[in-house]
Design a protein around this nucleic acid. Structure first.
Lengths: 221, 221
DNA sequence: TACGCGAGTGTGACTTGGTCACAGCGGTCC
DNA sequence: GGACCGCTGTGACCAAGTCACACTCGCGTA
């Protein structure tokens, strides 16, 4: 990825004026982060607006008792909008972002970000849309955590995390962290799914046999 | 409240340039809404950026089973930032906002909002800070709903909702809606608090006797 | 006054989900 | 082989949500 054409990776930015795009490209740096890097976290505020070119970032909360809950993932072509909110408002960040794979990203300095917001309705729209999607997402998470049954949430997450052939390479502990619950709860639910013939499990691996049945459970209110 | 001096009610806006403040004041309308009005809700997008002058707005989610969960309240001097996010991004809103008291608010048209964002670093800062606070707040809610015990959350909420003399005028059902749980759960917890001599309850009323004890429970991790 | 009514509250039985303790299993590394 | 460690299984128990139903209080009305 050269420094001049990464803008093409962001549909929301492609139509930017040359005049606007120029400072964005010139002052931003492309950074590479190895898998496992903590990109931001409590007491570690982000210093720039991040746009992901390659890889995924997992944003999660960790409770005092050590239980984890995955809030969302940022994929290539998306911005880490919430980070920005906290950057802008100087608020303490309560979640952490982990590079789930090797990550290539564009770091836009705060000053450039501010200038772009001021001069480009296009860029504003890009940023606010990203905000909007994330916030809606947070509302959905609250609803699920507060009101949804664990079997329904697990079915959803399995379908979400499986590759095209219905293969999921995660341990029970990792699935528990996805949903913010305990490992034993996941083990029991997976056993029940297996008993019904919907999945087969082995060490660190789950294979989905009945997408239809899981999907039906996932869509049950 | 005249149409010319309401800007004074917002610390973040007081220092705006005359040149910037003028269109804000001229194009905005002051609106009055009676208590109980649904200001926005699923399938009912807000049409303007709202700044509260008087009263409070309660933002809550309602589950399919009818259980409710209060997300936050907007007080006088604050903006309904999240509403705006959804307004900007054209996203479907998943929560509803109810006027908890009679409400007086300034409605800033979308075009003026956009113009102000473009021309005033001050105003941008005001908006992003509001965003930031709300988002941090949403993270906190997720953490509490996912990981905190119900007795701790109830103690926190009682202290939060009590007036200066430790008086709370809410039914068990209303408290359950605050925390997104069931009425029976609240009844049992309140009985336990009363048994310990921390509160006294009667029909629709709770009086706190031991702020210290409740506070200690509320601060327990 | 008596009555019915509805909102608010109390309670027991049961289900679901989270916690704790511990055991077994299957790898890998000496 | 044996030690170790991460992953999984399981039973007992606790916390919280659900369901059903009874009771109380205040109020309006026959």
């Amino acid at each position: 990825m050269t420094t001049s054409n990464w803008v093409e990776a962001f549909p929301g930015l492609r139509t930017l004026d040359q005049q606007i795009a120029k400072p964005l490209i010139e002052t931003s740096r492309v950074v590479n982060l190895p898998a496992g890097t903590q990109i931001f976290g409590p007491g570690q505020a982000p210093q720039a607006y991040l746009l992901l070119l390659q890889g995924t970032v997992r944003v999660q909360q960790v409770s005092e008792t050590g239980r984890e809950l995955v809030l969302y993932r940022v994929f290539a072509g998306e911005s880490c909008a919430l980070t920005t909110a906290c950057l802008m408002g100087y608020e303490e960040y309560l979640a952490e972002g982990i590079a789930e794979t090797d990550v290539e990203a564009v770091a836009v300095p705060r000053s450039t970000f501010d200038e772009l917001i001021a001069h480009s309705a296009e860029f504003r729209r890009f940023v606010f849309t990203a905000f909007s999607v994330r916030i809606t997402n947070l509302f959905r998470i609250i609803e699920e955590v507060a009101f949804a049954r664990i079997d329904v949430r697990l079915a959803q997450r399995l379908l979400d995390l499986a590759n095209a052939s219905g293969h999921v390479e995660l341990t029970h502990q990792q699935l528990a962290a996805e949903l913010g619950t305990a490992r034993e709860v996941i083990s029991r639910q997976l056993n029940e799914f297996q008993r019904r013939g919907w999945i087969v499990t082995s060490r660190g691996v789950i294979d989905i046999l009945r997408h239809d049945a899981l999907g039906q459970l996932a869509n049950a209110s």
